[in-house]
Design a protein around this nucleic acid. Sequence first.
DNA 1: TATTGTTATACTCTATAACTATA
DNA 2: TATAGTTATAGAGTATAACAATA
Lengths: 146, 146
Amino acid sequence: MEPDGALEDALVRTSFRVMAVLTRIGSEHDLSLTQLRLLGLLRDRRPRMTDLATFLGLDKSTLSGLVERAERRGLVTRGKSPEDRRVVDVFITPAGQELVERLQEQIHVALAPYTDPLHADERHALTHLLDSVSRGPAGDAGKNAL
Amino acid sequence: MEPDGALEDALVRTSFRVMAVLTRIGSEHDLSLTQLRLLGLLRDRRPRMTDLATFLGLDKSTLSGLVERAERRGLVTRGKSPEDRRVVDVFITPAGQELVERLQEQIHVALAPYTDPLHADERHALTHLLDSVSRGPAGDAGKNAL
DNA sequence: TATTGTTATACTCTATAACTATA
DNA sequence: TATAGTTATAGAGTATAACAATA
């Protein structure tokens, strides 16, 4: 039997490992972890600024800067909504889309060495256990992947 | 059978969840994720500046600022090594020690809702699988917990 | 009045380059 | 010469407060 808190410690330790991988891959493309997540979110969504702030857990003023820098690099675009003219929708550009797909691929490759030692049934079990965990406590919103 | 990359996606998703928890708890104490890790590392070590930079994957100049701000808050201290007078050793203070223990406790409490739904045998299995994963590819240094 | 977003400001985090002091 | 650490500088990330535009 593990000591109390062993599972939580293992989760924290693993998460720092994964974040180190994401940080490294991001920085190879001059992207912070936050820009990485931003692009990931935009991959299959075109949210408004406020939605992005909520998803990322950041202030809307922070989003203004984040999106502005991504836009300056040609990765995303902003467009005013026709229905409600206060709203700004954010889209990924083709260049951004291409980049995010490349990143996804590199992330998988970089994580593979960590997961490769597992047998097929272990991979299967771990995937399902992590899905349970990241689904979170009942009543916690669905949230985002990368 | 899961699609290819499902395990990697689950790892990334879970890691972002865990980081969100750590970020929130840190910010409740005015600590960045990096300061949190710094204190965690110092909990049972008294490394030199260069060691810390290596552990955290940061430049030594970044460490100077990080440690300086933590020192200003009374959480850590710096002391010149007597053997090699170029070296600076970093220690956690009693106040820092007390804080880091409180943080550890809060982190466990905050993660519990995610892990509570698992049965005892699932918790056991997940702990061991995560330990395998975070042990990493053969030849990867031991590294740190929180 | 309330909501959406931006701007101004201030601080932290980060790396690069140049430096000091030891070794 | 090489190593340990700091400082100066510049840019990104972040929140708070004040603001403009729209509802």
